[in-house]
Lab assay of single mutants.
Amino acid sequence: HNLTITQGKLFFHYNPKLCLSEIHKMEEVSGTKGRQERNDIALKTNGDQASCENELLKFSYIRTSFDKILLRWEPYWPPDFRDLLGFMLFYKEAPYQNVTEFDGQDACGSNSWTVVDIDPPLRSNDPKSQNHPGWLMRGLKPWTQYAIFVKTLVTFSDERRTYGAKSDIIYVQTDATNPSVPLDPISVSNSSSQIILKWKPPSDPNGNITHYLVFWERQAEDSELFELDYCLKGLKLPSRTWSPPFESEDSQKHNQSEYEDSAGECCSCPKTDSQILKELEESSFRKTFEDYLHNVVFVPRKTSSGTGAEDPRPSRKRRSLGDVGNVTVAVPTVAAFPNTSSTSVPTSPEEHRPFEKVVNKESLVISGLRHFTGYRIELQACNQDTPEERCSVAAYVSARTMPEAKADDIVGPVTHEIFENNVVHLMWQEPKEPNGLIVLYEVSYRRYGDEELHLCVSRKHFALERGCRLRGLSPGNYSVRIRATSLAGNGSWTEPTYFYVTDYLDVPSNIA
């Protein structure tokens, strides 16, 4: 807008934040220059609390790290170098490059900038070799853009010569660093050979998330399962459950009422301010606690030095998902009996873990797994792929695949051998790939016309006998059925096997 004052003059007093240069501009645009008398524009009460600059400061050096910015700028000295009290560095987070010096300023003089007072450097006698002032900004957020400017702080001049310097606002972004852990990993099994893994992005990506790394490792069953005799009275049979499938998407929606109208769909109840505040506090606490764990609990591995020492970490090797089922080394339970199943799973520490690289999504279907087997899954978020990966501390989750139908069934015939004193040795093959492992066998036998009897055969007993022995049988026709019990439950009964026990007292003698 054009402003013209045809008559009258300007009068400025007691404006401590208004620089004289701005008042002189007002004289020019209003056409009143030359009308004012000496005392109409006070030299001592206008701009006496402001830094009124008329020179431009330029930054000469900028260096960044993930949490620091090192700045240096060209030296500046007023005509009387004693008038320079120091520099004021202003900075704040700036997602967009549209910041002005006066953003967030209120009537009390406060604003949204963080201000650092910096002492002037030592003055050199040689004007050509003056030290460049600077400042190291610490405690910054990774991968965050900051708006920065600097200006001088000078003393009051009796001659009211307006001098000083100020830089333009520059924008500097800190470097990326390792992201925080992925949030809320959930693993479920939808079949006997697959596990579905879902997660949420890290709360602090500290860069642009480029991919996720998912490692999985087959877990050995508890050692007590191999040692305890679950045929003993009072000892509860062990059981394991597989990871249940995901709930429906509708039930997972946030901010939804727990109660549904019987007449149909209901609208979600909005969260109160107290609920939102509580969630923010919980989120802040979780982030602080995660940072504490990362800094205190997890110790970084030592990389190899120039002395030739090897990095103890196993090298990563990509495998196809079809090879995942046989990740671990199978060892027989008892070496003397080769027909026992290889369900003991000690994992070799030198073995390469299978892994998958996930790009542009937060889910993965891990296939080719062994049925009813526990897996430990390790999830890392990465925001750099080359020249070397920059990934987060791992988040861990466990899951067990679903049982395989008929995996616990005894394959092959049940054979028998009759000894003296009416002892019958029953023999059968253990299931080759049971659900988890076989903890015991149930032997059901009966003599024709009598009630059915049951015998429990422990895992250890089966390994020693290759089956079991029935003792003290009365003469007669017998039928026997056997079924295995694994961590997933009972298998199917075998087809009945028949044998006849004679009275050993009636056996004919070869003595003449």
Rank of each mutant, 00 (worst) to 15 (best):
L440A: 10
K271M: 07
E217G: 12
R471G: 09
K287H: 12
C266T: 08
R483G: 01
T328S: 15
Y448L: 07
F246M: 08
F337L: 10
V424C: 08
P244T: 07
K406L: 09
L225N: 05
Y212S: 03
G264D: 15
F246C: 09
S257D: 05
L235A: 09
L453D: 06
L470P: 01
H352Y: 06
S283A: 10
V331M: 09
S392G: 01
P475I: 08
L321W: 09
R471Q: 14
E404I: 04
P270D: 15
T494I: 03
S257V: 07
E258M: 06
M402L: 10
K317I: 09
V457M: 11
D323W: 14
I377L: 13
S304M: 15
A484G: 06
W216E: 02
W242I: 05
R447I: 07
E227V: 10
S304L: 10
Y259T: 13
L379Q: 01
M402I: 11
V365T: 04
K432F: 09
G476Q: 00
D408H: 01
S367F: 07
R240N: 13
G491S: 08
T288G: 11
F289M: 06
Q380C: 10
S305I: 05
E281H: 15
A263K: 02
K317C: 07
R316I: 10
G491V: 01
T272V: 10
K317W: 04
P387G: 10
V414R: 01
V334P: 12
R447C: 06
G489A: 12
G264P: 04
V324G: 11
D222L: 11
V345M: 10
T494L: 02
N383Q: 07
K460Q: 08
D311H: 14
F337G: 14
N255K: 07
H461N: 07
G325F: 11
C269T: 11
D408T: 01
Q384K: 02
H416G: 11
G374S: 07
N255V: 07
E281S: 08
Y498G: 10
Y445A: 14
A335W: 05
I276S: 09
G476W: 00
T373G: 06
L455E: 15
P244N: 14
S268N: 14
S305L: 07
E217M: 01
R400C: 06
K361W: 06
P245Q: 15
P238W: 15
S239I: 07
Q380V: 06
S474A: 09
E378P: 01
S479K: 02
D409L: 13
V393R: 15
N435M: 00
L440E: 04
E281C: 05
S223I: 08
I482C: 03
E260F: 08
N339E: 12
S479M: 03
P238Y: 08
Y445V: 06
K278W: 08
F215I: 10
C269H: 06
D222H: 15
K317L: 12
D385K: 14
T386L: 15
N477H: 06
V443D: 01
Y441R: 00
P270T: 05
S248T: 06
S320C: 09
L228I: 12
T497V: 09
I377Q: 02
R447N: 06
Y375D: 00
P238L: 07
E290N: 05
S283N: 08
P434C: 03
P387M: 14
L487C: 13
V327S: 12
